[in-house]
């Protein structure tokens, strides 16, 4: 495992825990897109179907269980426990606009036409765009709380670090996963605007506000 990947995974875990911490301590899901979280939950479940069929390492299995359980917990907090605080009226992105294309693409582009491989490819494609409802919500409300901004930054950094990991693996191991790399680049590019705002505003101690 490359250092980039370890840093990426830790950034991913940090993002998920930051979000849970924010919702739990403020007892509020305000400003958080339930749709994005619901799609991330679908991403983890469809990707980690191999949890019981192919063992890679204790690290891998532990992370998979952590991602699935933290994601289910997040969805539960948003849609059940703190449902009253969830801004459903600002969370207007249509999920089918990304779920259907991700499924169609997975049926066309996969490593084998089997249930597991199509499910894996679907999960990779859906992950690339699952953040759209959240970014759409930030744009629509015009701002994001600081912890939400830190969450988005950690989540965006995760796939950016994976890109460095893929470059490293390509050079040193000859390993090359075109589906993950393509989707990972799209995923990172989607955070471009946000990264810019994060560095120019949040790091300077201001709240993230999207100007017209």
């Amino acid at each position: 495992m490359t250092l980039f990947r370890l840093a990426g995974d830790l950034s991913h875990v940090l993002a998920i825990l930051l979000l849970l911490y924010k919702i739990w301590t403020t007892k509020s899901a305000a400003g958080i897109s339930g749709k994005t979280q619901l799609m991330f939950c679908m991403v983890y479940v469809t990707r980690y179907l191999d949890l019981f069929t192919s063992f890679i390492s204790v690290y891998n299995s532990t992370m998979k269980v952590l991602f699935i359980s933290a994601s289910v917990a997040t969805v539960y907090l948003i849609y059940f426990k703190f449902k009253a605080t969830y801004d459903g009226n600002h969370d207007t992105f249509r999920m089918e606009f990304v779920i259907v294309p991700a499924l169609i693409l997975a049926l066309i582009w996969n490593y084998a036409f089997t249930f597991f491989e199509i499910s894996w490819a679907f999960s990779i494609f859906l992950e690339a765009v699952a953040i759209l409802p959240q970014l759409f919500m930030v744009t629509k409300t015009g701002e994001a709380e600081n912890i939400t901004s830190h969450y988005l930054f950690a989540l965006g950094s995760y796939r950016a670090l994976y890109i460095l990991n893929w470059i490293d693996r390509y050079y040193f191991e000859g390993h090359w996963d075109p589906i993950a790399v393509t989707a990972g680049i799209v995923q990172t590019v989607l955070y471009g605007d946000f990264f810019y705002l994060y560095f120019t505003r949040v790091i300077k101690g201001r709240k993230l506000q999207v100007l017209p």
Binding site: D50, I56, M63, I179
Partner: peptide, 10 residues
């Protein structure tokens, strides 16, 4: 080719 030797990344 590539990518099909089991998905070892998360």
């Amino acid at each position: 080719e590539g990518g099909n030797e089991g998905h070892d990344e998360l």
